[in-house]
Design a protein around this nucleic acid. Structure first.
Lengths: 201, 201, 201, 201
DNA sequence: GATGAATGAGTCTTCATTCAT
DNA sequence: TATGAATGAAGACTCATTCAT
């Protein structure tokens, strides 16, 4: 009946090292920025030895990549649910629901996403979060085909290509750097409006 | 009519050091990325001694800043001209002209812009090229006020805020990473359309 | 009975890094002077990587400071013992014992002290070895109060102030740069004489 | 009758470059310390081109050496006069006059001497100002021979050797770092007393 | 598996010195 | 002679990565 201090050693030990490392990395990134994110600092923050860090990750980039993948996957999961729901709604409402969900997803991962997008010198900004974009594109394609079945293939792809950029950049703006005087809900309305119109008009 | 090799030594020597250094930096950035952009590498590429590099720039950041400022200024200049011309055109045509100009401006500075946006860990990506955005916003504000004089202040600012994101991200996409199978002119048409509609509808 | 070459690898390896670094620094200082004492040179001389050097010392100054502190502490220790012994001796004999001990202490650290005093651009030379001076001053104060109880506070402090300078500079001269034709023991006699007289007469 | 601006150009130009450079160096040393004394900084301060600086001085050390020589020569000159005067005075008064003069000489060159002694990593501190010491020693030798004609050669040299150290270090202390609560005149009295006694007793 | 001391290539930057004009 | 732009060796320091225990 010895009280468990902090977290029980067993629990702490069994929590996969990978998780601890990624958590540490996230914390460093979110609180101190990429410039401070040395592998040793991450290991410290994760309360893991630097040796162990390199047992689970080949190099620093792999940590970044995994962080990105996880953020991406989380967002994709949330978006997938939202897109499923959206399929049952009228065009505008569906679009708005997806946009609002994306904004929330990004906002929930704010500091991490922010550091990743703005400071990590990897990956394309004009195509940040490629997995998210892919998932979104697939859904949008179906969505447009339903609403505008006559649209040519080329037209469809062009519109989707732009819509992806518009959606991601707008949601990032709203989630991460919206000035206080602008209302997020209203901005989401506008984005949904632009997308509904732009995709099918 | 003997062809001049590369650049004549004299020409090379007289070319202002600052220019050579910035050119060197641009070349390093474009060909090897920011990660490889050490001051020594830049000096080598510029065929300038490291001592001279520090005679003309206080530190590495100052080189980056100057590169950004120049790209930004060049784009702003080109945009300013385009916006002046656009003022005389009907809404859609004006918008399209500005968008097309921005795409050209970005494309002309392709590798530099790309490296700057994606790899340089300075400045916000969701608000890349802040000077460009500022110039564009001013023009857009006037443009909207003309076309939709009854719009409330809040509505106006919200739409401009989004339009800036949409414009920049779309133009960056078209200029820097458009898949070959999509037609740039058509994409520009679509962006102009979305903006015309989205700004005033 | 095979003679051990230089130092056995094991011994070398187990010897604390801090010691190796300080030894290396001492050697560089003594053989090549402060001007040659780059951190890389110290690391080489210590047969330690530059990275390790910075694991144990925050920066170059910290190495110098530690070297100074150690020399100072060693001398202070030896002086403390000597001063305790001196308390039981008659005035002149006591003074002479302390002076002789200080000369020995300085001589034992000859090249290091020499480099430190003459080349290291830190700390005041007119007050080299401040800790040593402090310890000495405390002892001297008691010594004078015993022998000349009527001396005014101001007179006491003035004499001690000068005596410190005289003692340190004389002992340094004797220990570090005495011409061969002068006899150290005799010089020590004279210093002790001057101090005995000068302090209480 | 054109008013002379600042200093007349001719005068400024004719003032030997060497002087301007040394003045510049002195100013840098006195105001910013040796660490800031780069040759370019000196040239700036002297309003002389770096090229000219190297026309008149072989290297940086030569500037330092000249500065030291000049300070030394100035002090020696002042001391020489004082020693001549002292020859006519009784023992203690003569000694005191010389000591007081040395303190004044050092104080007049305070910041320069201070920087030179404490920061410049050249020359021995235990024998700072060797020329001064030499001049002083010569005078002292005569002085002692007069007062204590029976003293053996060895005894004489030993006493002079120590007296030089005592004189220089004490005068430096009094001139450069005396605590405010101690009275300079009194300290000079004491030094003179110690020397008078110590040299001949 | 876990550890963390040790490594050293590479970074930014300074400054004494040269030499073409 | 005077100039000052240009040079580059060298210095202090960082950090991703390894490997003996």
């Amino acid at each position: 009946m010895a009280a468990s201090r902090r977290t029980s050693p067993v629990q702490a030990r069994s929590k996969a090292m990978v998780e601890r490392i990624l958590d540490g990395a996230t914390r460093v990134l979110a609180t101190s920025g990429y410039a401070q994110m040395s592998t040793n600092r991450v290991a410290d923050e994760a309360e893991v030895s630097i040796g162990s860090l390199y047992r689970y990750f080949a190099d620093k980039d792999e940590i970044i990549a995994e962080l990105q993948a996880r953020a991406s996957d989380g967002i994709v999961d949330e978006l997938t649910t939202a897109m499923t729901d959206a399929a049952l709604l009228p065009a505008y409402e569906g679009t708005r629901h997806v946009v609002a969900t994306l904004v929330d997803s990004l906002r929930a991962r704010g500091p991490l996403i922010s550091a990743m997008i703005n400071e990590v010198p990897l990956g394309s900004h004009t195509n940040a979060l490629p997995e998210v974009e892919r998932g979104l594109a697939q859904f949008t394609r179906l969505y447009v085909i339903q609403r505008a079945p006559d649209m040519s293939r080329g037209e469809l792809e062009a519109r989707i290509y732009l819509a992806m950029g518009i959606t991601l950049s707008s949601c990032l703006r709203i989630a991460l750097e919206k000035p206080a005087e602008l209302d997020a809900e209203h901005l989401i309305d506008l984005v949904a409006g632009v997308l509904s119109l732009g995709l099918t008009a």
